[in-house]
Design a protein around this nucleic acid. Structure first.
Lengths: 336, 336
DNA sequence: ATTGGCGATGTTAACGTTGTCATTTGCCAT
DNA sequence: ATGGCAAATGACAACGTTAACATCGCCAAT
């Protein structure tokens, strides 16, 4: 038995009831039904009652597609993230969705999986549904993608970064400066053999650049950079590839915690404060977990929820600043 | 300067180009342009070339809303989750989205925030966009919500649970049995003063029931149940409320890790294996973090990604089984 | 008794596509 | 020559709504 059949009502192979079906049942014209939904005050109480009864009886739910076509307003926004699972971006999606859903907007979610071709494809798929705005993590990987967004003529928010030539709105922080801050802290603590572990996406690379430039400028040895795939557990074994290193900046907290787990196995983790660690570790993101584990994780705190909410506000705003730097904060705990 | 103006092209206050705009530029009728997009073989190569050039020049992107209205196929699916941030459900969303996006489906995401009224509202908002199917975590909290889904006449997948009277398809596991398994293990280990910490949503409650019933049946003291709000850090202080307890089942890994952090502060955590712990802790979900921390977290492993993928396959399938129990696995590590 | 206005309802066209059915052309077999 | 057919293209209605403009009573003001 097909899915369709197994849930069809006993009556007919119904499709969703329309405005005019309700109208017929209530003995009025469709426009009157439409008015009962949108402008009830224009309809006489007696009529309205009849129409409302008919709607209830049929289980009428307005067809937003038709509404969108007729009014040229879809009340939907496209959201493009690299990935949503196990990720700091989930907070951002939650934040923007909390901001947008009460306003009646639907969130259409797409993932690029850090792949330029897929990104372009999803961008174009998103746009074909005529969202009223696009919010994305990062910036388009290709000029083609950027052109697509510019031509769409809708508000666009790029997040989690501060692009030099943004398409429209921006809600992020300076990834380069985050790297600078960590390098400064680590070198200031007397560490001299630094390493960076993480992905090689644009934002991670920006962090690396700030980290690398600053470490060298402050007289540390040239830091090593270890590019890991997206699988956080890979970072557990990263230790083997980094002999002699005494401080690590991980591009995100998941990598940092994975790396610390490697340190623990190697017997290189102390319960004491930062200064006592054989290998200092600093993450990025401030996952709650980082606060709870021992030793607690030092990290660059970034408010993903605020980024999402801010992006949502920016695409809705008709005026005011369009580029917002949410900043970050170096939170020092026991790991480094 | 408004957002709209700041990104408008220098030419005109353009809205997106339509089929007939392309047609005009290429000197053909709109139906021919439509065919170039959908059935290129039906149009002469010379004409096709001209149309393609026109599409490129205008940056034409088909309007899926109009397509959906004309063909009565939206190629979108509605996804309703309690919350997406910091949550085991992100894996499920990723899984189903990975399955659906390549097929051209758009994922419309909505959050209920564990609120029955909001769930009903989002369900109805989702339905108003005429998705071809709905995938939700759990089951509708109200009969009204269930009725909405039944009347919609589309495939519906309920996940993360095995409802007794499902609306249509199911991809989940037996939450009651999960509680049973943990209680059995803990009592078998000689623990006698058990407690359960977590939320009071239907799935957590089912876990509690299995846990409670079994613990008592096996002769342990009646377990205590501590209902926490959704904020995992609340579980850090849970210890204070559970004097004398020697084993805890947390409804999810985040709570478990938070609770362990409380144990650590109280000096009640050992580095050794399960049997040595003063207070045993078992979580649910098998977050990667749980594997990495010390002591490593024992947990009920649930494959959120597989749940999402299975749900996606179920709503697409025209035949075959509609209720799939993905099961769970008790993974014993050092925490209990 | 007209007229003006308002409250309540209806008619029509449009939104951007696609399905269904023409129509036009050229070419081949008879 | 002539019917027949296929290849290429087009006209028109339909999808379910809404905007803009009618229409119809009815009552108050003249």
């Amino acid at each position: 038995m097909s899915a369709q059949m197994s849930i069809a009502s006993p009556e007919e192979p119904h499709s969703a009831p329309t405005l005019s079906a309700v109208a017929k049942l209530a003995g009025v014209s469709s426009i009157t039904v439409s008015r009962v939904v949108r402008l009830p005050d224009l309809v006489a109480p007696e009529t309205r009652g009849r129409v409302e009864a008919a709607m209830r009886e049929l289980g009428y739910v307005p067809n937003q597609l038709a509404v969108a076509l007729a009014r040229a307003r879809t009340r939907s926004i496209g959201v493009l993230v690299p990935t949503i699972a196990n990720s700091i971006f989930a907070d951002t999606v939650q934040g923007l969705s909390d901001e947008l859903e009460p306003l009646g907007y639907a969130v259409i979610l797409a993932q690029s999986r850090y792949d330029a071709a897929r990104e372009y494809h999803m961008l174009s798929a998103l746009l074909s549904r005529r969202p009223e705005a696009i919010i994305m993590v990062g910036s388009p990987a290709t000029e083609d993608g950027a052109r697509l967004l510019r031509r769409a003529g809708i508000p666009v928010a790029e997040t989690w970064d501060l692009p030099e030539a943004p398409i429209d709105a921006v809600a992020g922080f300076d990834n380069y400066e985050a790297g600078v801050a960590v390098a400064r802290h680590l070198v200031g603590q007397g560490r001299s053999s630094l390493a960076f572990i993480g992905g090689d996406d644009p934002r991670a690379t920006r962090r690396w650049n700030g980290f690398n430039d600053t470490a060298q400028a402050l007289g540390a040895k040239a830091p090593r950079r270890l590019v890991l795939d997206r699988n956080a557990s890979g970072s557990v074994v990263a230790l083997a590839e980094l002999p002699g290193v005494d401080a690590v900046f991980a591009a995100n907290d998941a990598h940092a915690i994975g790396f610390m787990s490697g340190l623990r196995k190697a017997g290189l983790l102390r319960d004491g404060p930062a200064g006592e660690q054989t290998v200092a570790v600093v993450g990025l993101g401030d996952l709650e977990m980082g606060r709870l584990i021992a030793p607690s994780l030092s990290t660059i705190r970034v408010n993903g929820d605020a980024i999402g909410r801010t992006a949502a506000k920016l695409i809705l705003a008709r005026e005011g600043p369009r580029h917002i730097d949410l900043g970050f904060e170096l939170v020092l705990r026991d790991s480094g």
